[in-house]
Simulated scan of single mutants.
Amino acid sequence: MTTRRGFLGTASAVGAATLLTTQAATGASAAPAAGITATDEKSARDAIRNVNAAMRTNYAALKSQLIKELSPVVVVQNNAVGGRFTLIHEGKQIETVDPVPEYFELAKSLAHIPLGVYSVIAPYLSDQVPNIPNAERIDPHDLDMIVFKAPGDQGWITPLNAYRATLNTAFTKLVTANLPADLETSCGTILREAMAFIDASVKARTFDMVSFNKFAATVYPAIRVNMTFAATAQINGLEALMKRWRALIGEKAWSDLYVTVLSIWTTADLNQASIIIRRTMNQAKVDTHLIDLPTVETPSDPIFVALDNLARIVQDNIAAEMVFNTDLKVADALKGEEDLLSDEILKQIGGTAPAARTAAFGRAPAGACPITGHTAAV
């Protein structure tokens, strides 16, 4: 970024970068100027570092105070039952609910059966990519890493039989679960075919990717039925909740609503809750006020993590326009996911900077949340 080149002085950016790289590679700094001792140099550099430390202290203090002012906010925690949703308004946690009907969880539970079988047998597969449809999509190196059991190892039989017993219990009780007729039928198909695959594999004391692929393809139409029921349940439950909360806080407050969606990385893109909830928001602001926060794992205090990150986003939105009002591209970077130096680095290595986005996510440090009173450990 052109605004960050000032610190390089009169040297060209490339020349200075080469100098800095050379010093880093040798692990040594340039010799102090005449009359300046190494102690003087260290003291001066520490003084420079202290400037940034003081900035961070001030930044953290502002963020801590801002958390208390964030309103209205909906925090979304993705979970196995369709999501937990919390409304925060005027400094208070108004309500936390799991609004999705129960058959969402039940439909997904049985749709996951092929993944459950795969999780047991994967280490015992052949490490050679077989001749199956779309085999070119399998990374041979990934396959080689996940197949870590020796050929002929029979260690899969006991855990697979145990899983089969769990499936059989669900199958025998399915009729009394009071599910919609089509969902009951699809669930029965998945359970029955899974037990048949397990029985055949255990009897033969062998299986391969081809036989598993055949089983998975057989149950896929039934899985699609389960997915349809799960999606309908989540849409209906979430939209009804948003409608009720909108009436509760009023149109004026709702028009400024922020929504933070916590999810693991593998579900952060096109997250199901984000897709549904964005339709209920102010469409003029949804692109900047609907914030997806991918996490490595579920945080112990998700409300604090969501608010802490949102406070960072809000204060950076204003800081960007005040600090970088002479360079809007850099301002957009501060407001977005792009690191401020990324554009400059790409220029120096001959790359092309991507378009800036509008929401920045920072890692939340531990601290007390004024809404929950808890301390987060991300």
Rank of each mutant, 00 (worst) to 15 (best):
Thr2Leu: 13
Thr2Gly: 08
Arg4Leu: 15
Leu8Ala: 14
Ala11Leu: 11
Ala17Leu: 13
Leu19Ser: 05
Ala28Glu: 10
Ala28Asp: 08
Ala33Asp: 04
Ala38Cys: 09
Glu41Pro: 04
Glu41Lys: 14
Met55His: 12
Gln65Cys: 04
Ile67Val: 10
Ile67Asp: 15
Lys68Ala: 12
Pro72Glu: 08
Gly82Tyr: 08
His89Asp: 14
Glu90Leu: 12
Gly91Ser: 11
Glu95Gly: 10
Thr96Glu: 09
Asp98Tyr: 03
Pro99Ser: 04
Pro101Asp: 08
Leu106Asp: 02
Pro114Met: 09
Pro114Asp: 11
Val120Met: 11
Asp127Val: 00
Pro130Leu: 08
Glu136Pro: 01
Glu136Met: 06
Glu136Phe: 09
Asp139Thr: 01
Asp139Tyr: 03
Asp142Ile: 09
Asp144Met: 09
Phe148Leu: 07
Ala150Glu: 14
Gly155Ile: 03
Gly155Ala: 06
Pro159Phe: 10
Ala162Cys: 10
Tyr163Lys: 13
Tyr163Arg: 14
Thr169Arg: 10
Lys173Gly: 05
Val175Arg: 05
Thr176Asn: 04
Ala177Tyr: 14
Asn178Pro: 03
Leu179Ile: 02
Asp182Leu: 05
Glu184His: 03
Cys187Asn: 10
Gly188Lys: 00
Met195Asp: 08
Phe197Gly: 01
Ile198Asn: 00
Ser201Leu: 11
Arg205Phe: 10
Asn213Lys: 08
Lys214Met: 05
Ala216His: 10
Thr218Asn: 02
Val219Lys: 01
Tyr220Cys: 06
Pro221Gln: 13
Ala222Val: 10
Arg224Ala: 10
Met227Tyr: 04
Ala233Thr: 08
Leu241Pro: 00
Arg246Thr: 06
Tyr258Glu: 11
Thr260His: 01
Val261Arg: 00
Leu262Glu: 00
Trp265Leu: 06
Thr266Met: 10
Asp269Thr: 12
Ser274Trp: 02
Met281Ala: 07
Lys285Phe: 10
Leu290Lys: 04
Pro294Cys: 07
Thr298Gln: 02
Ser300Arg: 11
Ile303Val: 15
Val305Thr: 12
Leu307Pro: 00
Leu307Tyr: 01
Asp308His: 07
Leu310Gly: 00
Asn317Phe: 13
Ile318Gln: 11
Phe324Leu: 05
Thr326Met: 06
Gly336Met: 02
Leu340His: 08
Leu340Tyr: 10
Leu340Ile: 14
Glu344Arg: 15
Ile349Cys: 07
Pro354Ile: 00
Gly367Leu: 09
Gly367Trp: 10
Ala376Pro: 03
